[in-house]
Design a protein around this nucleic acid. Sequence first.
RNA 1: GGGUGGUUAGCUCAGUCGGCAGAGCGCGUCGUUCACACCGACGAGGUCACUGGUUCAAGUCCAGUACCACCCACCA
Length: 926
Amino acid sequence: MGTKTPKSPPSAPPLTKDAAEAQPSQNGNGRRLDTIPTTYDPQAVEQRIYQWWEENSYFKPRENPADPNRPAFTISMPPPNVTGALHMGHAITDTVEDILIRYHRMLGDPTLWVPGEDHAGIAMQAVVEKQLNKEGLDRHTLGREAFIERVWQWVAQYKHRIQDQQRRLGVSCDWSRERFTLDGGLSRAVREVFVRLYEEGLMYRGERIINWCPHDLSAISDLEVETEDTPGQLAYIRYPLEEPTTDRQYIMVATTRPETMLGDTAVAVNPNDDRYRELIGRSLILPIMNRRIPIIADEAVDASFGTGAVKVTPAHDPVDFEIGVRHNLERIQVVGFDARMTDEAGQFAGQDRYEARKNVLAELERQGALDHQEEYTIPLGHCERCKTVIEPLISMQWWVKTAPLATPALNAVRYGQTQIIPARFTKTYTDWMENIRDWNISRQLWWGHRIPAWYCADCGEITVAREDPTACAHCGSARIEQDPDVLDTWFSSALWPFSTLGWPDDTPDLRRFYPTSVLETGYDIIFFWVARMMMMGTHFTGVVPFQYVYLHGMVRDKLGRKESKSLGNGTDPVQVIDELGADALRFTLATSSTPGNDTKYDPQRVVGNRNFANKIWNASRFVIGQTEGIGGIPTLAALQPRSLADRWIVSRFIRLTGEVTRLLDEFQFGEAGRQVYDFFWSEYCDWYLEIAKSQLRDEAQRERTAHILRTLLDGALRLLHPFMPFVTEEVWQHLYADIPADARPASALIVASWPIAEAATTAKLRDAAAEDDFALLQEIITRIRDARKQAGVEAGRRIQVILAAGAKAPMLKKQSTLIEQLARTEPPTIERKLAAKPAQAMPLVAGSVEIYLPLAGLLDIAKEIARLDSEIAVAQQAIARSRVKLDNPNFVERAKAEVVQKERETLSAIEDTLARLETQRRELGG
RNA sequence: GGGUGGUUAGCUCAGUCGGCAGAGCGCGUCGUUCACACCGACGAGGUCACUGGUUCAAGUCCAGUACCACCCACCA
């Protein structure tokens, strides 16, 4: 296998303590097994191994001397919030990314995984404010600077918590390149981007209706609003005409927010609505306020909905705001930023918005203007963070003009420069991009990147600059003041793939590792993050920021609910790791779902995978113990499989390696993991290891068998390493403990080579015949075991067995000791054809092989007849099905030749089986 | 209103070129043997949600229905 050593010599491999101290015995009978614990203890291994990896700089990218121009493999880690603790969402993210990283590292790619954290604007500020409240303080008494200082203290304190948790999971990222969205370098990138967007006219300041969170006291973007259908009332209100006629005294409008009617400045109807056409241009008297408001015509009104007339409140509704712009309507703000009514609300001033709603309705009722109310489901916007009902308000904010940025980002995906996996999310992405709306990036907070815009008190102009200005760029006045707001936390996240590599400077890292290879994250942040990185990346670097976007699903609880603090249904990954080990958790997360699909977290599965880690441990313990003294771990190509079992297992491993490699390249982690699991447990352990026991006892086979055991263990550890890094590394170090350091293919499994290159050059070891023959042998053994059980043969008793094996007789004769051993029989009698059928024998059929178990005394003839009859029936059905196909000329003509051929073979095999069953049946009489 | 995903064994889920349905857990029975009881052996258990279509052949492709999730959307 490939040879690679780290630049600096690694420290001593971290063997399990007892084992490291144990001396290999001189007689070559193996390491004293009693010195290695019989149960794998992740707690004793994981943290020590992780530290060892880190000390030896294995997580840093390493150039491949043989291939200096080899493309790098890079992932930018989605930066978790510093406020947060690790949850299952992080755990699946970290696991999938670490699998990719470890796989590519083993492939020999220069591999970089950039970690970091997000400053998490609102979330972080809220945490610290809450803390201040406990101390009887608030941020305003502290002041801006002191408050920010305070937040930095928290950051320093909590940053390491999440990192330590990630270490527990085994993430092999390059901590020396760790970044924080608010650190110096990244802030410079943010500033650069802001200024350039402003200079390019892609950034503007403007008054719009924004989503205001009255709890967090900030604007939030559309994406941060969660709409939820809420039961409520729709109030129908009559607005009297200023000059009523006999047939029309009023126009009726409907609203779900009656308190906003105090700010109405018009009523709008569709220009083509015959019912109202004549009223357009006339005036209404707004009830309560007694304000004269016009009836206007606007296309935005749907004549077929409700009364066809809409009250227009430009200050409190986005649609109304647009109508107001078109018709030059006054904007009267009646609800304030604290969700209380303003002075404009007259008698309701100072009331909470919901209190005012009640009171307005009562007043309308009193005045006879309230026609009626009906039950109505209202799509209500809530702040995604604090769940407060959003109040649409007018505010002056900074906006990014997104359409020009979206086009290249859209095309990049359309034309495949960036590929989204699974592909169905491409539509989600493109639909959003095609209908993108401008992005409100200012937040009325203190914690974050302060907006680099200064307003001049003299000329009123705005100065936007890379360096803090001392004077207005327009008039030179020194009376300038910086915008108090900060940027949306996603603004800096949008720059993550390149800002972390040193942009805007042209750094070696940026050249070597950008664009990145895979962006891996949950599908829930396609818009928040992925789309925005695509826009910023393509715009500022001229290339797509990543080649692939791989999206994983959400981890849900057993009932399929999203994890949430209020439900208390979250599982702490660190606790699971403490209990069952990181490998078990990782393997579970990697194999519990398919790409892009949600997964229900089932603790039972983690237990099962903990058991798998233990299985690896014990099988390895056995192999190492049994083969020590034989020494050496040959390459795959140097193996000399001889016995059927040898040829079978080697062939299977080579095929497995190809499959697993293909699956990982296709991002099919679950299937890849399951395949190695099945190979290791069901084939390597359950069959080959058992057979190897006897081969090892045979001096003639001992060395060859030991080599196969060791080489395939090595290979399986390599294939498993990306999934279960800890147990595999620990075992691998044990496996190589008796090999001098300079004779090892690598100093550690984490930097050992992926076995694919070797598997590719060992085609000669692919052995389909061995796989077929071994399958037959397995079937024979299983049939005998089953029959013993059915007949109630004691477990320890050896029974006789006679096989009529036809063409397979010579092959099976060579395997007779395996049958003896694994099916617990006397040395079997194996003939091509039997001269006479054994009397008083239980008859069985495995493929084309007849099996007879002379079990005089234990035989229940009636039961055997019933069993044979049922097997005959099954065979006949199968034959009938097969004949229907083969008798169908369409099938024979149209199906692929190989399928037809296979069907013919199947038919003849079943017919063969049937014939044997029928013979056996006749012999039993009845 | 538009879109996406799911529906396969008691439970949780695989099934990637259409070619006779798989795993883990759970369940039942048995455990001679010097890796592992966090184990081994054997077994039971399925109308692949429903309807129609394409095809020689459908869990798999197409259309529709039902139910369950989720995403997007300025109908007052």
